[in-house]
């Protein structure tokens, strides 16, 4: 949970390089609440990107969030207005905390569910609090002539950590090899400013292709394998 404090600080420091009002950096941590997303937004704001470019980049970068909600559908049920905040605050870190939370009691027990949701709400709010505090610290530190050169590496470090967490969850090698291969190909054939989006889009297409092949193969296997008389 505390991980958001230094990362928020890194974001705050990075934001001051934009020569915009620091309040806008604070606003970003209040209304966007995304680690990688906000770093990317700073990079795009600095590059003078347009609305469409920023929207597409954010959607693609956060496409992994599309699948986070699926495992929490049941647990967020009937949370009322709190549900909007729980969904808003579903960052990588918050998701991994909530997903690893043991369920208290029976899934039909309304009191246990309420208790569960109150706890999840506290975790989400605390995570945002650390993130916002970190941002403020970073914005303030930048006023103190603190040499922040190189702090942007915090984002790369976050990606490495999240990638290793994915490895622990998946224990399969090919998705990582595919990601590397697509990016290296992208370095060859894509212009620099299209590298990120082009690589993610290419990887999505390849994964769709993999799904189609995988589906056909399992379908063929199930029709051609004779049923065992004992099963």
């Amino acid at each position: 949970m505390f991980g958001y404090l230094p990362l928020g600080a890194a974001f705050g420091v990075l934001f001051t390089q934009l020569s915009l009002s620091p309040w806008l950096g604070l606003l970003m941590s209040l209304v966007i609440l995304a680690g990688a997303g906000q770093f990317l937004a700073v990079a795009l704001l600095g590059a003078g990107a347009g609305v469409t470019e920023l929207a597409v980049a954010t959607l693609l970068l956060n496409s992994r969030h599309l699948f986070y909600g699926l495992s929490l559908l049941e647990r967020f049920r009937d949370a009322g207005i709190a549900k909007v905040y729980l969904i808003f605050g579903l960052t990588d870190e918050t998701y991994s905390l909530l997903a690893s939370l043991p369920r208290s009691g029976d899934r039909d027990d309304i009191h246990a569910r309420r208790e569960d949701q109150r706890l999840m709400l506290r975790i989400t709010a605390l995570n945002q609090l650390w993130w916002v505090l970190g941002t403020l610290m970073g914005l303030a530190a930048a006023q103190l002539n603190f040499d922040s050169n190189g702090i942007e590496f915090a984002l790369t470090a976050l990606f490495v950590v999240l990638g290793i967490e994915q490895w622990y969850a998946l224990r399969e090698r090919w998705p990582f090899v595919l990601g590397l291969a697509v990016t290296f190909t992208g370095l060859w054939i894509l212009p620099n400013d299209q590298l990120l989006l082009g690589s993610i889009a290419g990887a999505c297409l390849l994964l769709l292709g993999h799904y189609a092949v995988h589906k056909r193969r399992t379908a063929m296997a199930s029709t051609h394998t004779p049923r065992s008389p004992h099963s």
Partner: peptide
């Protein structure tokens, strides 16, 4: 599979 692939792309790109 997508989260692992996206993370690898992000590491390589950054």
């Amino acid at each position: 599979y997508l989260p692992a692939i996206v993370m690898t792309v992000l590491v390589a790109v950054s």
